[in-house]
Design a protein around this nucleic acid. Structure first.
Length: 325
DNA sequence: GGCGTTCCTTTGCACCAGGG
DNA sequence: CCCTGGTGCAAAGGAACGCC
């Protein structure tokens, strides 16, 4: 058996073991303790997270974060993983925060000189864009875990007007537009509602939920079908700084708000046709801070409103013929 | 608490075998 | 003949344990 295959065998063996002595390995692989010691030295210098404890009950230990035995990626594969991973960096919160950064770094370091150049080039011309968010979602991990274990969660949720206590069974979490969403079965309302993870101020896992629940993939598909069937209109607005400030406070628009470096923003999203008048009313109060590019229906409503308002103001405040200063 | 014992790793050295 | 990989042995030292 070649040395390298033996090293990998040992690597896989100790990956399963987590704690062992050199003697044990020597017996297992039929070589001397001295030789095992050298193997382990080599593995260790290759980056296998080993440490030793001397003395009684001592021996070798694997650190918690076990490394996988070597996986060979082609350079193309490595680059694709690298970029897929880059896309995640836009999210302030990930269920696997700390590790996320070291992965890209490791991959990048392992690439050959040419591949690094290629990545650098691609970086300049290829991006997975999603709006950068600075909201961190501390409830992300508990909600994700609860959805995997099918547990009921008590969460303090910030809804439109108040902080409410909710009992829900999360069915999963997904990211969209830089936000984390969690569809969950609401035990009071007895149906699945969509929650924004960053609005869950706390999430405490309670008992197991024995009811069978729809899974995330099925739910997303169902939602998608439903949305398609609704009469939806594209909304496209531009905002100045003040408009951006207003928009940030809006429960729905803010999720699609994109702010540029000048502090000005745009929102592009699909809305339900039936809500057009509501949006028109809202934008009316924002005045010149919002410019509606589409749909035209809203533009018309705004004009109509403004004209009516102007007429009303004239009637009320224009003092025909009376003296003014 | 001090001390010796036991069980473990670490390190160094001498030696052997096979391949280029 | 040298290099590499493997073995055996011995000395040193850390840590836990038991005993006084």
């Amino acid at each position: 058996m070649s040395k390298s295959t033996r090293l990998i065998d040992i690597w896989m063996y100790i990956n399963r073991k987590s704690a062992f002595t050199a003697q044990e390995l020597a017996d297992e692989f039929g070589v001397s303790v001295r030789t095992i010691q050298r193997y382990l030295n080599e593995l260790s210098s290759m980056g296998v997270p080993l440490y030793t404890e001397q003395g009684r009950y001592g021996g070798y230990r694997m650190l918690n974060n076990r490394a996988l035995p070597p996986i060979v990626f082609t350079e193309e594969e490595a680059i694709s993983i690298f970029f897929a991973h880059q896309a995640l960096h836009r999210y302030e919160s990930l269920p696997f925060d700390a590790e996320a950064k070291s992965v890209s770094e490791k991959l990048y370091q392992q690439l050959s000189q040419e591949a690094k150049k290629k990545v650098d080039q691609l970086r300049l011309h290829l991006a997975f864009w999603s709006p950068t968010r600075t909201i961190s979602s501390s409830s992300l991990v508990p909600l994700l875990e609860a959805s995997m274990n099918r547990s009921i969660v008590a969460m303090k949720y910030e809804s439109k007007d108040a902080l409410k206590e909710k009992r829900v069974t999360p069915i999963g979490v997904y990211a969209q537009n830089g936000f984390w969403y969690c569809p969950a079965y609401d035990h009071d309302k007895r149906k699945i509602l969509l929650y924004r993870v960053d609005r869950a101020h706390s999430a405490v896992v309670l008992e197991r939920d024995d009811e069978p629940r729809i899974n995330l993939a099925a739910w997303l598909k169902q939602e998608y079908e439903e949305q398609k069937n609704h009469a939806r209109v594209e909304l496209y607005i531009q905002l100045d700084r003040e408009g951006v400030r207003q928009c940030k406070g809006h429960f729905n628009l803010s999720s699609a708000l994109v702010v540029d470096e000048k502090g000005e923003g745009t929102v592009r999203m699909h809305i339900n046709r039936e809500y057009l008048p509501d949006y028109a009313s809202l934008f009316y109060t924002w005045g010149e801070h919002v410019r509606v590019v589409a749909p035209q229906d809203i533009q018309d409503m705004l004009l109509e409103r403004a004209e009516k308002q102007l007429i009303a103001y004239r009637a009320m405040y224009q003092h025909h013929g009376e003296h003014q200063d």
